[in-house]
Design a binder for these strands. Structure first.
Length: 303
RNA sequence: GCCGAGGUAGCUCAGUGGUAGAGCACUGGUCUGAAAAACCAGGUGUCGUCAGUUCAAUCCUGACCCUCGGCA
């Protein structure tokens, strides 16, 4: 039984989760594919924290699964799930309540619904596939796994490569190995979804982008000075490519902000679409949600 | 005021005598180890205004309005 606070970007989930955790003496597990990176603060809306006994802590609340990954590394769903499981067990062992907060829908679902036993990503195979064209890859997939080939458009290179990779590593089509256990079910948990009226959320995105812009420029400069580039995985996070273009003088500040706002809006839309699938979520209006209200519902729900 | 260029989708623009398209934006959706990713689908329009020519005008003609250059 965990508390989950989810919502689109700029919905205010981090602050609410911190308040909730503070009140009940819980600890937060971030479910955010970008806050894992060290060095990204403003651009990922990661709350400023300090290290207390090696644990990232915000206002006294332990905030796990953030700020640990070097910028050049790539993280993935499977790694997140296994690492977070360990942390959750430790929190429960202390008789504390884990509060999951984040907007990476796939990670959340993988964590609570569970993934099928599929092989890990294989960099060697990916490199091999990358040398082929989209059409070639899709054709190859169709020859070994027609069901996957029909389900995945040829243009979706990432999913085509993954399906092919699964077949090459196991000899079994991905469509056969997938049992359907990975579905829109987050288990018996208290699942809060922060909902905003679309225009209002868009305004928040615009305001926030303007506020964090200089901070993003500074942290990006710092990373570039350390030798990282536009190709570094962390710097491919939403908005950073535009910041780099601005630093390089390729676009104006106004153009960079406009582009980041658009990308963030589009991202928020994808999140809304993803979270729309869950039936058992408890929807809170983002403009009115408070930790007290959430905990009030939580206490009712527990009974 | 004169000369030139131009007014077509929210933006930038292409185009045709038989009422119109692209990219981006926008809307909806997909999602099993890259997910802040990668995709799929959808055209949303008084073609500046008015008049003329024509079977038919966004396109041709005229007037007017507006924008941007240049000259005054």
């Amino acid at each position: 039984m965990a508390i989950i606070i989810a919502g689109p970007t700029a919905s205010g989930k981090t602050d609410l989760a911190l308040d909730v955790a503070r009140i009940i003496g819980g600890e937060i597990i971030s479910v955010d594919s970008r806050q894992v990176y060290r060095g990204l603060l403003f651009g990922t809306a990661k709350p400023a924290g300090v290290y207390d006994g090696g644990v990232y802590t915000v206002g006294g609340v332990p905030y796990h699964m953030v700020d640990f990954l070097p910028p050049e590394q790539i993280y993935n769903t499977g790694l997140f799930v296994s690492a977070a499981k360990k942390i959750e067990a430790e929190i429960l062992a202390k008789n504390k309540i884990p509060v999951f907060a984040g907007g990476t829908g796939m990670w959340l679902q993988a964590y609570f619904s569970g993934m099928d036993k599929l092989p890990e990503a294989d960099p060697t195979l990916r490199a091999k596939f990358s040398a082929m064209t989209k059409a070639q890859l899709h054709q190859k997939l169709a020859s070994v796994d027609i069901a996957s080939a029909e389900a995945i458009p040829a243009g979706n290179i990432q999913r085509v490569m993954r399906a092919l990779e699964i077949f090459e590593l196991t000899g079994i089509p991905a469509s056969t190995l997938r049992t359907g256990r990975f579905n829109a079910n987050l288990g018996d948990n208290f699942f809060v979804y922060l909902d905003w009226e679309k225009d209002e959320l868009n305004r928040r995105i615009e305001t926030r982008t303007n506020l964090i812009f200089d901070g993003m420029v500074n942290e990006t400069r710092a990373l570039l000075l350390r030798g990282f580039t536009a190709e570094t995985p962390a710097l491919k996070s939403l908005g950073y490519p535009q910041i780099i273009d601005f630093i390089d003088g390729k676009i104006t500040r106004a153009a960079a902000i406009e582009k980041i706002v658009i990308l963030t809006r589009q991202y928020a839309k994808r999140q809304r679409t993803w979270f729309a699938r869950y039936k058992n979520k408890i929807i809170f209006n983002g403009a009115q949600a408070t930790a007290e209200k959430i905990l009030g519902e939580y206490n009712k729900w527990k009974k």
